[in-house]
Simulated assay, not measured.
Amino acid sequence: MLRSRLHEGFRWLGDATDPDLRADPTGWWRDADLLAGLGPALAALFSETPPSVVTGPQSRGSLLGTLVAVHLGVSFVELLKDPGPAADSDAWLQVPAPPDYRDRHLRLGVRRNLLGPGDRVLFVDDWVATGAQVEAAHTLVARSGAAWLGAAVIVDAAERSHLRRKVDLRSLLHVREL
């Protein structure tokens, strides 16, 4: 049922031959029943090892990550793109990400006091294509001393197969299914 709702709420923008063919998942957020089911469905991808914290990049990773965190009864930590400290004393962990799907070179960051040893971290996002953000998140978690559990996403469109193993990428759909 969830998978069919994901199909119904999704569309491609552009023609099939268009080199700028883009995914449009915005219909997912308009379906209240689908939205209610996404947190439990993404959490179920890692049911064997419960996280103590869920993380995800702004903005869709934050939307989905909070749904997963609320479902699991754990906290959520947002990973910010190109963050800047609010003051000189504001301590951040930051890592450069490889080029993303828009060929941007972003930095991903988190305040140092939000992740640390003893945390078991589950990464959540809507889509993985280049894997730039999930790879940067994996590095951030390692640098914080926390344990990486894996990455739960709605769509796996990973361009590099070794990335799936490196970050333990699990998805509700593969891009070929859309």
Rank of each mutant, 00 (worst) to 15 (best):
L38R: 04
P40Q: 14
P40T: 10
A41E: 15
L42K: 06
A43Y: 08
A44W: 09
L45K: 06
L45S: 03
L45R: 10
L45H: 05
E48N: 12
P50V: 10
P51L: 13
V53G: 01
V54M: 08
V54D: 01
T55Y: 11
P57S: 10
P57I: 13
P57M: 04
S59Q: 08
R60L: 14
L64P: 04
T66Q: 15
V68G: 13
V74R: 08
V74A: 09
F76M: 15
E78C: 10
L79F: 00
K81G: 00
D82Y: 04
P83W: 02
G84P: 02
G84S: 14
A87D: 01
D90K: 03
W92T: 00
L93H: 08
P96S: 14
P96W: 05
A97Q: 02
A97G: 04
P98V: 04
P99A: 11
L106I: 00
G109D: 02
R112P: 00
L114E: 12
G116V: 10
V121L: 13
L122E: 02
F123V: 15
D126P: 08
W127K: 00
V128N: 08
A129S: 12
T130L: 09
G131A: 12
A132C: 06
Q133E: 12
A137W: 13
A137V: 14
L140Q: 10
V141W: 15
A142K: 14
A151L: 04
A152C: 05
A157T: 07
R160I: 12
S161W: 12
L163R: 05
